[in-house]
Protein backbone atom coordinates (compact mmCIF):
# COMPACT_ATOMS: atom_id res chain seq x y z
CA UNK A 1 0.00 0.00 0.00
CA UNK A 2 1.24 3.49 -0.80
CA UNK A 3 1.77 5.74 2.15
CA UNK A 4 1.46 9.47 2.43
CA UNK A 5 -1.18 12.00 3.38
CA UNK A 6 -3.40 11.35 0.34
CA UNK A 7 -3.26 7.57 0.74
CA UNK A 8 -3.69 6.88 4.45
CA UNK A 9 -4.16 10.29 6.03
CA UNK A 10 -0.73 10.18 7.67
CA UNK A 11 2.41 12.02 6.63
CA UNK A 12 4.92 9.58 5.15
CA UNK A 13 8.54 9.50 6.35
CA UNK A 14 9.58 11.76 3.49
CA UNK A 15 6.65 14.13 4.03
CA UNK A 16 7.51 14.32 7.72
CA UNK A 17 11.14 15.04 6.92
CA UNK A 18 10.03 17.88 4.66
CA UNK A 19 8.12 19.72 7.40
CA UNK A 20 10.57 19.35 10.30
CA UNK A 21 12.75 22.33 11.20
CA UNK A 22 16.51 21.61 11.43
CA UNK A 23 17.80 19.52 14.31
CA UNK A 24 19.80 22.50 15.61
CA UNK A 25 16.62 24.54 15.93
CA UNK A 26 14.94 21.83 18.03
CA UNK A 27 17.83 21.91 20.48
CA UNK A 28 17.23 25.62 21.10
CA UNK A 29 13.72 25.28 22.48
CA UNK A 30 10.05 25.08 21.48
CA UNK A 31 9.32 25.40 17.79
CA UNK A 32 6.27 24.89 15.57
CA UNK A 33 6.02 21.89 13.29
CA UNK A 34 3.52 22.67 10.55
CA UNK A 35 2.22 19.41 9.14
CA UNK A 36 0.26 21.11 6.36
CA UNK A 37 1.55 20.04 2.94
CA UNK A 38 -1.39 20.60 0.62
CA UNK A 39 -2.39 23.76 -1.22
CA UNK A 40 -5.49 24.44 0.83
CA UNK A 41 -6.86 28.00 0.63
CA UNK A 42 -6.26 28.94 4.26
CA UNK A 43 -4.07 31.34 6.24
CA UNK A 44 -5.09 31.82 9.92
CA UNK A 45 -1.69 30.52 11.03
CA UNK A 46 0.12 33.31 9.22
CA UNK A 47 -2.17 35.91 10.77
CA UNK A 48 -1.97 34.38 14.24
CA UNK A 49 1.79 34.59 14.55
CA UNK A 50 2.89 37.69 16.51
CA UNK A 51 6.46 37.17 15.29
CA UNK A 52 5.74 36.85 11.56
CA UNK A 53 7.41 33.46 11.60
CA UNK A 54 4.87 31.87 9.24
CA UNK A 55 4.72 32.97 5.64
CA UNK A 56 1.93 32.17 3.19
CA UNK A 57 1.58 35.37 1.22
CA UNK A 58 -1.24 36.77 -0.82
CA UNK A 59 -1.93 33.54 -2.59
CA UNK A 60 -3.58 31.80 0.33
CA UNK A 61 -3.39 28.37 -1.28
CA UNK A 62 0.38 28.46 -0.78
CA UNK A 63 1.76 25.99 1.76
CA UNK A 64 2.81 27.74 4.97
CA UNK A 65 6.54 28.17 5.42
CA UNK A 66 8.06 28.46 8.86
CA UNK A 67 10.96 30.77 9.54
CA UNK A 68 12.22 28.68 12.37
CA UNK A 69 14.61 31.26 13.78
CA UNK A 70 11.72 33.67 14.31
CA UNK A 71 9.40 31.14 15.90
CA UNK A 72 9.31 31.22 19.71
CA UNK A 73 7.01 28.23 20.05
CA UNK A 74 4.18 30.22 21.65
CA UNK A 75 1.54 27.93 20.18
CA UNK A 76 -0.91 30.59 18.97
CA UNK A 77 -0.79 29.15 15.45
CA UNK A 78 -1.51 25.65 16.77
CA UNK A 79 -4.57 26.97 18.61
CA UNK A 80 -5.87 28.70 15.49
CA UNK A 81 -5.19 26.20 12.71
CA UNK A 82 -8.58 24.87 11.54
CA UNK A 83 -6.87 21.66 10.36
CA UNK A 84 -5.26 21.00 13.76
CA UNK A 85 -2.08 20.49 11.77
CA UNK A 86 0.38 22.49 13.86
CA UNK A 87 2.28 21.10 16.81
CA UNK A 88 4.81 22.74 19.09
CA UNK A 89 7.76 20.53 19.92
CA UNK A 90 10.12 21.46 22.74
CA UNK A 91 13.19 19.25 22.65
CA UNK A 92 14.97 21.30 25.30
CA UNK A 93 12.60 20.28 28.11
CA UNK A 94 14.99 17.75 29.69
CA UNK A 95 17.73 15.32 28.74
CA UNK A 96 15.28 12.51 28.13
CA UNK A 97 11.89 14.13 27.56
CA UNK A 98 10.40 16.51 25.06
CA UNK A 99 7.17 18.46 25.33
CA UNK A 100 4.61 18.34 22.56
CA UNK A 101 1.87 20.93 22.59
CA UNK A 102 -1.10 19.92 20.49
CA UNK A 103 -4.59 21.20 19.73
CA UNK A 104 -7.38 19.20 21.38
CA UNK A 105 -11.14 19.34 20.87
CA UNK A 106 -12.66 16.40 22.73
CA UNK A 107 -14.37 16.03 26.07
CA UNK A 108 -13.51 15.20 28.75
CA UNK A 109 -10.45 17.41 28.86
CA UNK A 110 -7.39 15.88 30.46
CA UNK A 111 -6.14 17.26 33.76
CA UNK A 112 -2.62 18.42 34.42
CA UNK A 113 -0.60 15.53 35.80
CA UNK A 114 -2.72 12.85 34.08
CA UNK A 115 -0.84 9.95 32.57
CA UNK A 116 -2.12 9.31 29.04
CA UNK A 117 -1.03 7.23 26.07
CA UNK A 118 0.86 9.16 23.41
CA UNK A 119 -0.20 7.97 19.96
CA UNK A 120 1.25 8.32 16.49
CA UNK A 121 -0.18 9.97 13.40
CA UNK A 122 -2.05 6.73 12.72
CA UNK A 123 -3.41 6.51 16.27
CA UNK A 124 -1.09 3.68 17.33
CA UNK A 125 0.04 3.68 20.94
CA UNK A 126 3.67 4.75 21.19
CA UNK A 127 4.58 5.61 24.77
CA UNK A 128 3.07 6.91 27.95
CA UNK A 129 2.96 10.67 28.27
CA UNK A 130 2.22 13.06 31.14
CA UNK A 131 -0.08 16.02 30.76
CA UNK A 132 1.95 19.08 31.68
CA UNK A 133 -0.45 21.88 30.87
CA UNK A 134 -3.99 22.39 29.61
CA UNK A 135 -4.27 25.85 28.09
CA UNK A 136 -7.22 27.77 26.67
CA UNK A 137 -6.45 30.59 24.23
CA UNK A 138 -9.16 33.20 23.83
CA UNK A 139 -8.41 33.63 20.14
CA UNK A 140 -8.74 29.91 19.51
CA UNK A 141 -12.55 29.68 19.53
CA UNK A 142 -12.54 26.84 22.00
CA UNK A 143 -9.59 24.81 20.82
CA UNK A 144 -7.57 23.72 23.83
CA UNK A 145 -3.78 23.42 23.78
CA UNK A 146 -2.56 20.40 25.68
CA UNK A 147 1.14 20.02 26.45
CA UNK A 148 2.39 16.51 27.13
CA UNK A 149 5.85 15.24 28.00
CA UNK A 150 7.03 12.29 25.94
CA UNK A 151 10.28 10.32 25.70
CA UNK A 152 12.52 12.40 23.46
CA UNK A 153 13.02 9.64 20.97
CA UNK A 154 9.32 9.80 20.12
CA UNK A 155 9.03 13.57 19.70
CA UNK A 156 8.60 13.24 15.95
CA UNK A 157 6.31 10.24 16.29
CA UNK A 158 3.73 11.17 18.92
CA UNK A 159 1.06 13.55 17.62
CA UNK A 160 -1.93 12.90 19.83
CA UNK A 161 -2.96 11.06 22.96
CA UNK A 162 -5.77 9.00 24.38
CA UNK A 163 -6.79 7.84 27.85
CA UNK A 164 -4.97 4.80 29.20
CA UNK A 165 -6.53 1.42 28.43
CA UNK A 166 -6.21 -1.87 30.25
CA UNK A 167 -3.33 -3.07 28.05
CA UNK A 168 -1.39 0.10 28.80
CA UNK A 169 -1.54 -0.74 32.50
CA UNK A 170 -0.69 -4.42 32.17
CA UNK A 171 2.93 -4.83 33.15
CA UNK A 172 4.42 -7.84 31.41
CA UNK A 173 8.07 -7.47 32.44
CA UNK A 174 7.89 -6.59 36.09
CA UNK A 175 11.64 -6.12 36.61
CA UNK A 176 11.87 -3.36 34.00
CA UNK A 177 8.17 -2.38 34.18
CA UNK A 178 7.42 -2.86 30.49
CA UNK A 179 3.74 -2.91 29.53
CA UNK A 180 1.87 -5.04 27.05
CA UNK A 181 1.32 -1.97 24.87
CA UNK A 182 5.05 -1.27 24.67
CA UNK A 183 5.76 -4.85 23.69
CA UNK A 184 3.03 -4.86 21.04
CA UNK A 185 4.45 -1.67 19.59
CA UNK A 186 7.94 -3.17 19.38
CA UNK A 187 6.57 -6.24 17.60
CA UNK A 188 4.67 -4.07 15.14
CA UNK A 189 7.93 -2.25 14.41
CA UNK A 190 9.63 -5.46 13.39
CA UNK A 191 10.78 -7.16 16.57
CA UNK A 192 9.65 -10.70 15.88
CA UNK A 193 11.76 -12.66 18.35
CA UNK A 194 11.95 -12.47 22.13
CA UNK A 195 15.51 -11.17 21.79
CA UNK A 196 14.41 -8.41 19.39
CA UNK A 197 11.73 -7.36 21.89
CA UNK A 198 14.34 -7.36 24.63
CA UNK A 199 16.70 -5.11 22.67
CA UNK A 200 13.84 -2.79 21.71
CA UNK A 201 12.18 -2.46 25.12
CA UNK A 202 14.50 -3.92 27.83
CA UNK A 203 11.80 -6.48 28.69
CA UNK A 204 13.62 -9.47 30.18
CA UNK A 205 16.82 -7.61 31.00
CA UNK A 206 16.08 -7.32 34.71
CA UNK A 207 16.77 -9.34 37.81
CA UNK A 208 14.68 -12.40 36.88
CA UNK A 209 16.12 -12.53 33.35
CA UNK A 210 12.74 -13.11 31.77
CA UNK A 211 11.62 -16.02 33.94
CA UNK A 212 8.23 -14.46 34.56
CA UNK A 213 7.68 -12.63 31.26
CA UNK A 214 9.26 -14.82 28.56
CA UNK A 215 6.10 -16.82 27.98
CA UNK A 216 3.87 -13.77 27.88
CA UNK A 217 6.17 -12.07 25.39
CA UNK A 218 6.13 -15.16 23.16
CA UNK A 219 2.34 -15.19 23.32
CA UNK A 220 2.14 -11.51 22.34
CA UNK A 221 4.58 -12.00 19.44
CA UNK A 222 2.52 -14.97 18.28
CA UNK A 223 -0.71 -12.95 18.48
CA UNK A 224 0.78 -10.02 16.60
CA UNK A 225 2.63 -11.92 13.88
CA UNK A 226 0.30 -14.88 13.47
CA UNK A 227 3.18 -17.27 14.16
CA UNK A 228 2.59 -20.36 16.24
CA UNK A 229 3.81 -19.86 19.83
CA UNK A 230 5.79 -23.08 19.43
CA UNK A 231 7.97 -21.43 16.79
CA UNK A 232 8.99 -18.57 19.01
CA UNK A 233 12.24 -19.45 20.68
CA UNK A 234 13.25 -18.10 24.05
CA UNK A 235 16.30 -15.81 24.02
CA UNK A 236 19.65 -17.35 24.79
CA UNK A 237 20.03 -18.58 28.36
CA UNK A 238 23.20 -17.61 30.16
CA UNK A 239 25.02 -18.40 33.35
CA UNK A 240 24.61 -17.72 36.19
CA UNK A 241 21.07 -19.11 36.17
CA UNK A 242 20.52 -17.73 39.67
CA UNK A 243 21.58 -14.30 40.96
CA UNK A 244 24.96 -14.86 42.66
CA UNK A 245 26.86 -12.21 44.67
CA UNK A 246 30.12 -11.20 42.99
CA UNK A 247 32.26 -12.34 45.90
CA UNK A 248 30.66 -15.78 45.84
CA UNK A 249 30.81 -16.29 42.11
CA UNK A 250 34.43 -17.34 42.00
CA UNK A 251 35.73 -20.62 43.33
CA UNK A 252 39.15 -20.21 44.88
CA UNK A 253 41.79 -19.61 42.27
CA UNK A 254 43.79 -22.60 41.17
CA UNK A 255 41.16 -25.13 42.16
CA UNK A 256 39.60 -25.28 38.75
CA UNK A 257 42.72 -25.02 36.59
Amino acid sequence: MKCGLIYDGCLSQAETASVLPAAERFAKGPVAVIECIQDIPCNPCEKSCPHQAIIIGDNITAVPRLQADRCVGCGLCAAQCPGLAIFIVDASYSATEAVITLPYEYYPLPKEGDIVMGVSRSGAAVAKARVLKVRRETAAYGTILVSITVPKKFMHTIRSFRALREADKRIVCRCEEITETEIRLAVRQGANTVKDVKLATRAGMGACQGTSCRREISRIIAEETGASPEEILPPRFRMPVRPIPLAQLAAEEGKND
Binding site: Q209, R238, M239, P243, P245, L246
Partner: peptide, 10 residues
Protein backbone atom coordinates in the same frame (compact mmCIF):
# COMPACT_ATOMS: atom_id res chain seq x y z
CA UNK B 1 31.04 -4.53 45.34
CA UNK B 2 31.09 -7.97 46.93
CA UNK B 3 27.39 -8.24 47.71
CA UNK B 4 26.13 -7.13 44.31
CA UNK B 5 24.36 -9.98 42.51
CA UNK B 6 25.46 -11.07 39.07
CA UNK B 7 22.37 -11.95 37.03
CA UNK B 8 23.77 -12.78 33.62
CA UNK B 9 26.84 -13.15 31.49
CA UNK B 10 27.04 -12.59 27.77
Amino acid sequence: LKNINVIRSF
